[in-house]
Amino acid sequence: MSAPQFLKDCETRMEKAFDVLRNDLKGLRTGRATPAMLDTLRVDYYGSPTPVKEVANVSCPDPTSIVIKPFSGDSLKDIEKAIRASSLGLAPNNDGKVIRLTLPPMSGDQRKKLVAEIKKKAEDAKVACRNIRRDGNKNFEDAEKAKTITEDDRDKGKAKVQDLLKSYEAKIDDAADKKSKEVMEG
C-alpha cells in the first residue's frame, strides 16, 4: 500500500466509527417521538430478525406518540413482542390494526442519565478513531522500515493521520453536543 492508500483506509474506518455513533444517537430517546427510535428494533419475521420499518409503516402523529401500522396483520403480535423485549421501555397499545406507543415525559434524572450515555458513546467512538490512528501510524512506520516510503513521507503521513483524527473528534463532539442539547431541551 502507498501513503495515500493508508490515509484513505484511515479515513474510511474513521467515517465508519462516526456512522456507528450517529446511528446510536439516532435511536436514543429524547423528549420527542421519532420513527428513528425504532431503527434498531428487529422483529421476528418468518424466522429472521427484520427491521420494523420493513414490515410496517412507522409514523409520529404528534411529538409524544408513534403509530406502527404493519403491512400484514399477521406481524402485529411479533412487532408487539419485539417492542416489549426491547430496551425502549415503552408499552405497546395494540388495537388489532395498529400499535400505538406513547412516550411519557422524561424526568430531569432520566435526561441526565441519557446525556451521560451520549458522552460515553461519543468517547467510545473517539477511542475507535484513536485506535485507527495507531494502526495508520504503524502502517507508515512499517512502510518506512521496508524502504517503500521515505522518513519525510512517514512523518508527513503521520501528521495527516493526526489531522484526520482531530477532524473526526470534532465531528463526534459536535454530534454528541447537539444530541445532548436536544435531550436536555426535550
Rank of each mutant, 00 (worst) to 15 (best):
Q5R: 10
A125R: 00
K8Y: 00
V98C: 12
P70Y: 03
C60A: 12
D153K: 05
N57T: 15
E54M: 11
A159D: 10
K120R: 10
K160G: 03
D142K: 15
K120V: 15
V98T: 13
E141F: 04
I66G: 07
D155L: 15
G89K: 11
R100Q: 05
E169R: 02
R134M: 12
S59C: 13
S2R: 02
K138A: 11
R130L: 08
K69T: 13
G47M: 01
D135P: 01
Y46S: 07
K158F: 09
M106D: 04
N57Y: 11
R84F: 14
A17R: 00
I172Q: 02
G136N: 05
S72F: 04
D78G: 11
D109Q: 14
R154P: 12
L7D: 02
E15M: 00
E54L: 15
T102W: 09
P51K: 02
A36G: 13
I68R: 00
K113C: 14
A176M: 09
V115L: 06
D173W: 07
A3T: 00
L90T: 09
K26Y: 09
V161D: 02
R134T: 06
S65M: 13
K147M: 08
V43I: 08
A122S: 13
D142F: 15
D19N: 08
D153S: 13
L76W: 06
D44H: 14
K16Y: 04
L41A: 07
E169Y: 03
I149T: 00
K16R: 11
D174C: 05
G31H: 10
G136V: 02
V43A: 04
G27I: 02
L21P: 01
D9F: 00
E185A: 12
L103R: 04
P105R: 10
K178M: 11
N137C: 08
A146D: 15
L38F: 09
K171Q: 05
D62C: 10
G136E: 01
V55P: 08
D173N: 14
R22E: 05
D155E: 14
K26R: 13
N57G: 11
P35G: 11
L21K: 03
Q5F: 03
V98M: 13
K81N: 11
K156Y: 06
A17L: 00
A3D: 00
F71V: 13
I83V: 14
G186N: 12
T50Q: 07
M184H: 10
I172F: 03
S167M: 09
N137G: 11
C10I: 00
R32Y: 10
K156N: 08
L164Y: 01
E182K: 06
G108F: 14
K160V: 01
D173L: 12
V58Y: 02
K120D: 15
A56N: 05
K77S: 09
T40R: 15
D163I: 08
L164R: 00
R13D: 02
L7F: 06
Q110F: 14
R13H: 02
S59G: 13
D163V: 04
D109R: 07
E123A: 11
R29K: 10
P51G: 04
E182D: 10
K147T: 07
A56V: 11
V20S: 06
R13I: 01
K77P: 12
V43M: 05
M106R: 09
G157A: 14
P105N: 09
K8A: 04
K97W: 11
I149Y: 01
R42C: 12
A175H: 02
P61N: 04
F140A: 05
